[in-house]
């Protein structure tokens, strides 16, 4: 029992550098700002009445469609809050407004005709970020000294939001796999289902290539791809608990999403953006900093031959240090 609890605690609250979450914040809010700038929510005001069918939170709260001018104002406030959250200015307020207005505006569009399955991940992401301390570093607030002083050290506060986004993504794909089996059974793989979907792709959607139609003509190949897709979806929970599984399943997921876009049409852009949380940005940033010091060092060697031996010795000592933070400090001190 203690092992399960300690593993649970380690999964969510293992200390990690603030820069990893900060990079996720910039990419997440920046990408979604650009994504939502291209669409206009006032479009909802001109739809025929029968297209509206309440989703439960709107029905329960009696929320209807506001006027076009209100929608326009709300969407501009939302865009501003996404920008503020991206650069990390008045973080607490900006991230909260981005979440509340995102929940409302994205939810509003779900009342039209049918649910768009790629939208909910944005709402969950905004919620996670609003609860997080994503602007402790690499932000305007940090520059103005409005967050912790001095620069924050590694903490579980910078781990759990990233892991929460992993959980959201894993849940979505796993649910999609289970629902395929619950709705269609193994026939989803063994029948001509995917072959038909691929051949009808350009009719119902807009795939990037005609390759899907060609693959669809070969029943065995289509069934093989269907089995592979289902296997990836159902085994994705392993990515939460095993680094090895993560290294295989996450790239496989990316390839699957790219293939869906190329062969069948749907973009699922929101999933691609949230997929950025799988990249260990903290480690990437630390390695970049270390590489930067190395580069500066090697330039100095060229101009100060007498110090070359000293630098080599210090660098060898730094290289043998297993802790990347300590390694960075040693390289800094060798300057």
């Amino acid at each position: 029992m203690r092992t399960v609890r300690s593993r649970w605690e380690a999964f969510w609250f293992e200390p990690s550098p603030a820069i990893g979450l900060a990079i996720c914040r910039v990419l997440f809010f920046g990408a979604f700002l650009l994504y939502y700038l291209r669409i206009n929510y006032t479009e909802l005001g001109s739809l025929p009445a029968h297209a509206w069918r309440d989703v439960w939170p709107f029905a329960a709260l009696g929320l209807g469609l506001p006027s076009a001018s209100t929608l326009d104002m709300l969407q501009w406030v939302w865009r501003v809050s996404l920008f503020a959250a991206c650069i990390g200015v008045t973080w607490r307020m900006a991230s909260l407004v981005a979440f509340v207005l995102g929940l409302y505006l994205i939810g509003l569009s779900e009342n039209v005709a049918r649910i768009n399955h790629s939208d909910a991940i944005v709402v969950f992401g905004l919620g996670v970020m609003a609860l997080s301390r994503g602007a402790d570093t690499f932000s305007v607030d940090a520059l103005r000294g409005r967050t912790s002083k001095p620069a924050p050290g590694p903490s579980g506060e910078y781990t759990w939001p990233i892991r929460a986004m992993w959980l959201v993504m894993v849940t979505i794909y796993f649910a999609a796999g289970i629902t395929k089996l619950a709705t269609s059974g193994v026939a989803w793989v063994t029948s001509a289902n995917l072959a038909n979907l691929l051949m009808l792709g350009p009719v119902t959607r807009a795939p990037l290539t005609w390759l899907g139609q060609e693959i669809g003509r070969h029943a065995a190949l289509s069934s093989g791809l269907a089995a592979l897709a289902l296997m990836i979806e159902l085994s994705l929970p392993l990515a939460l608990v095993s680094t090895g599984a993560r290294l295989i399943l996450v790239p496989a997921l990316l390839i699957m999403q790219v293939s869906i876009r190329a062969l069948m049409g749907p973009g699922f852009t929101e999933f691609f953006i949230c997929g950025l949380f799988w990249i260990p940005w903290g480690r990437v940033a630390e390695r970049s900093i270390t590489a930067g010091f190395r580069h500066r060092e090697s330039r100095r060697w060229r101009y100060a031959p007498s110090r070359r031996t000293e630098f080599r010795e210090r660098r060898a000592a730094a290289d043998s240090d297993p802790d990347p933070r300590s390694r960075t400090r040693r390289l800094e001190s060798s300057e």
Partner: peptide
């Protein structure tokens, strides 16, 4: 569908 929760029935129904 219990938005924002969903069974994610993407391409789940059989295509004839």
């Amino acid at each position: 569908e219990l938005w924002p929760f969903s069974p994610y029935a993407m391409f789940a129904a059989m295509q004839g």
